Simulated scan of single mutants.
Amino acid sequence: MAVLDVSEELKSLASTMESIEAVLDLGRIRADITALEEQAAAPDLWDDVENAQKVTSRLSYLQGELRRVESLRGRIDDVQVLFELAEAEDDADTRAEAEAELASVRKAVDELEVRTLLSGEYDAREALVNIRAEAGGVDAADFAEQLMRMYLRWAERHGYPTEVYDTSYAEEAGIKSTTFAVKTPYAYGTLSVEQGTHRLVRISPFDNQGRRQTSFAGVEVLPVVEQSDHVDIDESELRIDVYRSSGPGGQGVNTTDSAVRITHLPTGIVVSCQNERSQIQNRASAMNVLQAKLLERRRQEEQAKMDALKGDGGNSWGNQMRSYVLHPYQMVKDLRTDHEVGNPQSVLDGNIDGFLEAGIRWRKSQSS
Rank of each mutant, 00 (worst) to 15 (best):
M1A: 09
S7Q: 13
S19M: 10
V23L: 14
V23D: 13
D25K: 00
A31M: 04
I33G: 08
T34N: 11
A42H: 14
A52G: 07
V55N: 02
V55H: 00
T56S: 03
G64R: 02
L66M: 07
R75W: 13
D90N: 06
V114A: 14
T116F: 01
A133N: 07
D139S: 04
L147C: 10
Y160I: 09
V164D: 05
T167I: 15
I175D: 05
K176T: 14
V182E: 05
T197L: 15
L200Y: 01
I203Q: 09
D207P: 00
T214P: 01
T214Q: 02
F216K: 06
G218L: 09
V224D: 11
D229H: 14
D232E: 12
D234V: 12
E237L: 15
S245N: 11
G247V: 11
G250M: 04
T256L: 08
T256P: 03
S258L: 04
I262E: 07
H264D: 10
Q274G: 15
S278C: 01
Q279A: 03
I280E: 13
I280Y: 13
Q281I: 06
S285M: 11
A286N: 12
K293A: 08
R299S: 13
Q300N: 10
D307R: 01
L309F: 09
M331P: 07
D338P: 05
D349F: 06
F355V: 00
A358S: 09
A358Q: 03
